[in-house]
Design a protein around this nucleic acid. Structure first.
Length: 286
DNA sequence: AAGGGCTTCAACCGCACAGTT
DNA sequence: CAACTGTGCGGTTGAAGCCCT
């Protein structure tokens, strides 16, 4: 057996004692793991694997449980709100996937990491720019994120027209001014996490009214009105980074891809027009 | 229909670090 | 204090499914 892990002596010993399984988990293995944890709880993964009769490493059991079998794991497409939050939190913390995941209940760090690599990095690659470059970050901040905000607003406007908005216990509520709508959210931000237990917390799901700008160096801010706008309220933050006086200011009225109703898909935040526009911007500025 | 390329995501790996012995 | 053990994290891989020709 190919044992590459050298940092975990216990794993090596386990390998020597019995043939360890690798690769995809079977239904039987899943059931064993779930049953054992239901009875004995999680933790002590190496011994858990042994006592549960699983020919897996403790690490493998832990990963399978946390990323797949845990009852509160959310599956399915990343929603627009989640996309927005991921972009925002990544702009703050970088590849701190587990930290980001803490603010998206039910989403795992692995899932977020995969999302970033398959969607966001792919776009950067297609634009032939580095995902960590200022240009790409500005693109996220001034184009993709406002685009997502607009889409969320559009979706909310549609849903509230048919069903009365109801903020249920445990959900968070976007503040008034976020498109004038009350948007229930199920995630928490660093700013609200301490108060998330309250039944209705009036916080920004994406930005704290100060934090976002505090983290932007003065000479990194393309818009002199930016900070001032941030002082005046949540909605101004969004409007200000929708129309920064930068590379993207020549959108005029022609470029409003996020208002294209046909493109309101939850898993693609960039359509053909977006991409062509961005390519032009990048070529122009390079 | 087939097969080659691409995308997605579950799973693995190596490392770091904290706790325990 | 050193060795050992358990856990968590970020990076990477590879199998499976999808898409295109």
């Amino acid at each position: 057996m190919d044992v590459k892990a050298k940092g975990n002596l216990q794993s090596d010993q386990d390998d020597e004692q019995m043939e360890l399984r690798r690769g995809p988990w079977t239904v039987e293995e899943d059931l064993k793991l779930v049953d054992y944890i239901a009875t004995h709880g999680e933790g002590r993964w190496n011994s858990l694997a042994l006592y549960a009769g699983l020919k897996r490493t403790g690490k493998s059991c832990r990963l399978r449980w946390l990323n797949y079998l845990r009852p509160d794991v959310r599956r399915g497409n990343i929603t627009l709100e989640e996309q927005l939050l991921i972009l925002e939190l990544h702009s703050r913390w970088g590849n701190r996937w587990s930290k980001i995941a803490q603010h998206l209940p039910g989403r795992t760090d692995n899932e977020i990491k995969n999302y970033w690599r398959t969607r966001v990095q792919k776009q950067a690659k297609q634009l032939k720019c580095d995902v960590n470059s200022k240009q790409f970050k500005d693109t996220m901040r001034y184009l993709w994120m406002p685009r997502l905000v607009e889409r969320i607003q559009a979706a909310v406007a549609t849903s509230t027209a048919t069903t009365a908005a109801s903020a249920t216990a445990g959900q968070l509520v976007m503040p008034q001014g976020f498109g004038g709508e009350r948007v229930t959210q199920s995630y928490t931000t660093p700013e609200n996490s301490s108060t998330a237990a309250s039944s209705e917390t009036q916080v920004s799901p994406v930005f704290d009214s100060n934090d976002y700008y505090v983290n932007v160096p003065a000479n990194d801010n393309p818009n002199p009105d930016y900070f001032q706008a941030s002082q005046t309220g949540f909605s101004h933050q969004y409007s200000s980074f929708i129309s920064p006086s930068t590379n993207f200011s020549n959108h005029g009225t022609d470029f409003q891809p996020w208002l294209d109703g046909a493109d309101i898909a939850t898993d693609n935040f960039m359509n053909c027009d977006d991409f062509l526009f961005l390519q032009q911007q990048f070529n122009f500025n390079m």
